[in-house]
Computed example of a mutant assay.
Amino acid sequence: MTKAIKTVVTALALMIAGGAPVAAQTFEPPRGCTLSLTAQLRQCQVANVYSCTGDAPGDRWITFADGVGIFFTSRIDFETRWIESIDHDSGNIERLLPKAADHASFSTLLATGRDDFDFMTETSDGFVERFVGADTLTGETVMIDGIPLERSTFDLSSYDASGAFLTRRSGSQFISRDLRLFFGDTEVFENAQGDRIETFQPPVTFALPGEDGFGTLEPKFDCNAVLARAPGLTDRLRSFRDDRI
């Protein structure tokens, strides 16, 4: 599953354009941190996964970059809970609140095929959001760039502190048992204002240490496109969930 995610995210359509890609750049993890995986995603995004010696065992950080640069960083724990996320455009930080009716658990998903969750987050500007939903394994396995993945479905709704509906997200994802990570696939996003957006952002290639593309900040796929955006939505395609690559 992924972390707290913005209600104003993503694009309504992709239209062909002639924009040139940015020059190749290399991601440098912070001091005391080690990069472990680079994933190229559809819709012109690349994700880099790293861990840091000062964090709890099993914690990992994921940075997302598009054709402009890094726009989002998230931290997940061993159970893929949404511990912390940073929106680099706004500077806003979102953190998981410690008390929850039912924290997300990757271990439960692997053991039983389903994980229900009900937890809350708070942003640095004081906005509290409740997330309720479930992840379910379908039993389907796929191989993407040499890494075995399993397909899962999810349904996730969010509410404000008063209980008012904010967003609903549903669709399919992939999980890696070995990496203990979620990866995106197809998704439908809906909000209280009546917006409905469909996205397709599965991983295409993976790079491990020593392999071509490891540590790059340059996305490779679907970058010859211009985003046709709805009024009030963010101006670049974003990942919906912090714990989902």
Rank of each mutant, 00 (worst) to 15 (best):
S105H: 01
H88R: 15
G67M: 10
D116S: 09
A100G: 06
S85V: 08
Y50R: 04
L110P: 02
A100M: 02
I62D: 07
V49H: 10
A100P: 02
V49P: 06
T73H: 01
P98N: 10
F78V: 12
F119Q: 11
T123S: 06
I62Y: 02
F106H: 00
E84D: 13
R95Y: 03
G67P: 03
H103W: 03
I93K: 12
R81D: 02
E129R: 14
P98W: 04
T73A: 11
I62S: 05
S74P: 03
E129A: 13
T73F: 00
E129G: 09
K99T: 14
G69I: 06
F72E: 12
S85G: 15
T108F: 01
V49L: 13
V68H: 13
S90W: 02
F71W: 13
D125Y: 08
V128Y: 01
T63S: 14
V132L: 07
H88L: 15
F117D: 08
S51H: 13
I62M: 12
G91A: 09
A104Y: 12
P57V: 10
T108A: 14
T63F: 00
E79K: 00
M120T: 13
S90H: 05
R130S: 08
T112C: 05
S51Y: 07
P98K: 05
N48D: 05
D55Q: 11
G58I: 08
P57E: 10
D118H: 06
H88C: 10
E79T: 02
S85P: 06
G69E: 07
D66Q: 09
H88Q: 15
P98Q: 04
V132P: 00
S105N: 03
A47Y: 00
M120Y: 08
A134G: 03
Y50T: 07
D125P: 01
T112E: 09
T136I: 13
Y50N: 07
P98S: 07
F106C: 01
A100D: 03
G58P: 06
G113W: 01
T136F: 05
R81Q: 15
E94S: 15
D87N: 15
F78D: 13
I76T: 09
F72D: 12
D66G: 12
W61Q: 13
T108L: 10
F78R: 12
V68M: 13
T123P: 02
R130K: 07
G113L: 06
T123N: 07
T53D: 12
G126P: 09
I93S: 12
D87T: 14
A56H: 07
S85T: 14
L110S: 07
V68P: 03
D87I: 11
C52W: 01
F127C: 07
D77Q: 04
